[in-house]
Simulated scan of single mutants.
Amino acid sequence: MADNTEQGQEDEKEEAGGNKKLILFIVIAVLLIGVSIGVTLFLMMGGEEEGGTTEQPTEPVKQPAAYQSLDPPFVIDFNVSGRQRFLQVNLTVMGRDLEALEGLKKHMPLIRNNLVLLIGGFEYHSLQTEEGKEKLRESLTKSIQAVLEKEIGKPGIEQVLFTNFVMQ
């Protein structure tokens, strides 16, 4: 009987050792899961502070430039010291709003009238300089923007470009 008692005690020791191993395994598994969740949350929170995953308002995408030629070319006559002088200039308008460029086409007669009067008001000799041409270009841009602002409610164009500039 002593043998049975000794064998029963050994079985209990083996069961207790097996239970300890199982408990130790479960504790380690829970700790590993907790650590992985903690690291994941830390990385997610850290990314938000740095601006990595936060939703920020996006800037409007800049539309590609669109060009509209103001055909036919403008021909302006100047009286310089009793001699007849001419300026022929081809203009192209750059804008990014296709609706505004349609408004430009719709109001072309008014725009062309204003531009002819504006160009004719410049001194012939001042248009021979780089500064004079740049001043004319800026004035043309402002004139077109003013018409579009009045007619469609927005300036619509960014700038006027010279595609041909001939003085005679």
Rank of each mutant, 00 (worst) to 15 (best):
L24W: 00
K20W: 01
I28S: 13
G38Q: 03
T40A: 09
D11T: 15
Q63T: 13
E55L: 14
I23Q: 09
G17K: 11
I33C: 07
A29E: 03
G34S: 03
G17I: 13
I28H: 02
V27M: 08
V39M: 06
I26C: 09
G18H: 07
V61K: 09
F25P: 01
E48M: 13
G52F: 13
L41I: 15
A16Q: 06
K62F: 02
A29Y: 01
G34A: 04
T54R: 15
E59H: 08
Q63L: 12
E55Y: 08
G17V: 12
E49I: 15
E15I: 09
E49V: 15
T58I: 14
L31K: 13
P57G: 08
A29L: 14
K20L: 08
K20E: 06
K62S: 04
G47W: 13
G18S: 12
D11C: 05
T58A: 15
F42D: 01
Q56C: 09
G38L: 07
G52V: 14
T40M: 06
K21H: 03
Q63C: 04
K20I: 06
L24D: 05
M45P: 00
A29C: 10
F25M: 11
L31G: 10
E55D: 08
T53C: 05
L22V: 04
I26R: 09
F42P: 00
T53N: 11
I33W: 01
E14K: 13
E55N: 10
T58S: 13
V39H: 01
A29T: 08
G17T: 13
A29Q: 04
E48G: 07
I26V: 11
G17Y: 05
Q63E: 14
E59D: 12
V61N: 03
L22Y: 02
G52Y: 12
L24V: 08
T54F: 04
L32K: 10
I26Q: 05
G51R: 05
I23W: 03
E48P: 00
G51Q: 09
L31Q: 11
Q63K: 10
P60T: 15
Q56Y: 10
E50S: 11
E49F: 14
K20D: 04
G47H: 11
L24T: 09
N19T: 01
T53G: 04
